[in-house]
């Protein structure tokens, strides 16, 4: 089967998810082991810690045409590096202000804590996030329309 680029009849959003090695990525793995289904509209980029994610990555994702970006990590208190997720939270708050100034809808971005044991939660969050972005439609920033 030759895959085709998305056609005009429907909308497959382009969603980038940053996941930390120890918790949320492991939670995503558990969702897999548990065969919990969710839409294939996400591409995960693994980092060691949610604190590794530079807010610029998320802005760049939107600039390059992402319809949504999700930033995930360990619950507070669970960070493998103790407080990396607190740093992620601080950076996210600054980022969220900028995304809001740019008029990017709140449903298109988020920061979620998902533990290694929360396959269900991963799957639910992805399902909901994708659905919300689908409702909003394409964003297509960074292009001279």
């Amino acid at each position: 089967m030759a895959p085709k680029k998305k056609d005009s009849n429907g909308f497959h959003p382009r969603i980038v998810v940053f996941a930390c090695n120890w918790c949320s990525y492991a939670g995503a793995d558990l969702a897999g082991v548990s065969r919990l289904q969710y839409p294939a509209d996400i591409r995960v980029i693994r980092t060691m810690c949610s604190g590794r994610v530079n807010p610029a990555f998320i802005l760049k994702a939107f600039k390059m045409g992402a319809d949504g970006v999700l930033w995930t990590g360990c619950h507070f208190g669970d960070c493998h590096y103790m407080f990396g997720n607190y740093r992620a939270e601080e950076n996210y708050q600054r980022l969220a202000k900028i995304l809001d100034l740019l008029g990017i809808e709140k449903e298109r971005y988020g920061l979620e804590w998902i533990s290694a044991a929360e396959g269900q939660r991963w799957s639910r969050i992805i399902n909901e996030f994708v659905e919300n972005v689908q409702k909003l439609g394409p964003k297509k920033l960074g292009v001279k329309s």
Binding site: P3, K4, K5, K6, D7, N9, G10, F11, H12, R14, V16, A40, D41, R43, I45, T47, M48, R52, N54, F57, K60, A61, M64, G65, A66
Partner: peptide
Amino acid sequence: VARQFTDRQLLSMLTTALRDWHAPAVKE
């Protein structure tokens, strides 16, 4: 520089993901 997870490496993943994103044809 965060070795094995450098900005260049992560951004190259991000860039290629978004530039050549594949999605299946949508059934009507």
